[in-house]
Amino acid sequence: MNHDPSGSVLVVGGGIAGMQAALDLADSGYRVHLVERTAAIGGAMAQLDKTFPTNDCAM
């Protein structure tokens, strides 16, 4: 372990998991680089119509 670690974190993937990880880190004092392969974040969840068990809109 480096004695003088960097306060930044790289998150690979802008789906629901990547976004949540990035938000938690940014909200607790770390700088986050979020890298997404496609032209927009959102991932697979954005493609879903509704989610169970509440049938909420996935958007």
């Binding site: 670690p5 306060g7 974190v9 990547g18 990880a21 938690d24 880190l25 004092g29």
Partner: peptide, 21 residues
């Protein structure tokens, strides 16, 4: 588990918290 990963990253870098935000 996204939050878990955030937690583990934060734990590993606790000494540097806030240095680059």
């Amino acid at each position: 588990e996204a939050s878990t990963a955030a937690c583990e990253a934060a734990r590993a870098l606790a000494a540097a918290r806030g240095t680059q935000a």
